[in-house]
Simulated assay, not measured.
Amino acid sequence: MDALVSTDWLAEELGANDLRIVDATYFATDPTRDPAAEYEAGHIPGAVFMDLADLVDTATDLPGMLPPAEKFASRMQALGLGDGSRIVIYDNSPHHTAARAWWMLKTHGAHDVAILDGGLAKWKAEGRVLKKGKETLRHRHFTVWKDEKAVRDLAQMKANQASGAEQVVDARSAARFSGAEADPRPGVAPGHIPGSVNIPQDSLFEADGTWKRGDTLKSVFDAAGVDLAKPIVTTCGSGVTAAVVLFGAHLLGASQVALYDGSWSEWGADAATEKAVA
């Protein structure tokens, strides 16, 4: 299974014994929308709802941090996602949150994971069938595992400031990156990590909401001066859209890509870190 699958492909695969579909819609900055309620109002048949707002590390005050491996595995088992499953993830969020779910699953050892190109919006636009309510879930075994190589913490990011070993790519909007727009979180400074470059996550998509591909996608990275053959760390506000840029690099064959989970929520709130503006 490719990392990115089409709605046609998914429609043909519906009902396959090893296929699991996941709705990973999440609205980090819009409290007026309830992703669980929207899921129950209409989802792709067979899809389960992955609550990204709840799938976090509760031992930290930082927003949306990766949960412990045991907690993640337990939640996946409860959703019926297990070893040997082919997992297809979609969302209906402007933040393209399926990428965060994809990264979390890959980080925790899932092998066959894909994102639905165009998400729920494309599925609905094509007039395909939707189902209401919740799905009946059957527990499956999900091996406890976590690949620390895919994650960066504050100490590693500070060390990278000195070494410059990894390119840092920020997925926030240009206004947030430059500091022209204030951070929405109290106590978090404006600006960006010195030396980082900006690839706003929405620049990786076509007008119809599908992913850019091939040279068109690569041109976005080229314009930002990112060398896909060299190590990359992605960051954003809270680690969600950073996964979008990470997935885009993955589509282009980049093999040394990690994500700074604390992102600007951590760096921008730390009085000891350097900040750059403009």
Rank of each mutant, 00 (worst) to 15 (best):
T25G: 09
D170A: 07
R152G: 01
P63A: 07
G164T: 04
L259A: 04
P194E: 14
T273P: 00
K122D: 05
M65F: 03
L55M: 02
E148M: 00
N92C: 10
G239C: 07
Q156F: 13
K131P: 05
A207N: 14
I89S: 02
D112V: 12
V22R: 00
L79K: 01
T60D: 15
V233T: 14
L246F: 08
A125P: 11
G239A: 08
T210G: 06
L55F: 02
V240I: 15
A101Q: 04
A171L: 06
K132H: 14
A59E: 15
L105F: 10
A121M: 10
M65E: 10
N92T: 11
A73Y: 06
D61V: 09
D23L: 07
T136C: 08
T32Y: 03
W145V: 12
K275A: 14
M50I: 02
I87H: 05
G191H: 07
V277A: 14
A271V: 08
A162V: 14
W103I: 00
Q201D: 06
D153M: 08
V188M: 04
A180W: 04
A47K: 10
H96A: 11
V197F: 11
K212N: 03
L81M: 04
G195T: 11
T136W: 08
M104S: 09
T97R: 01
A3S: 09
R100N: 00
H141I: 13
V129L: 13
K230N: 06
V168Q: 09
G15R: 15
V240H: 07
R100H: 01
L251A: 05
A78P: 00
D117L: 01
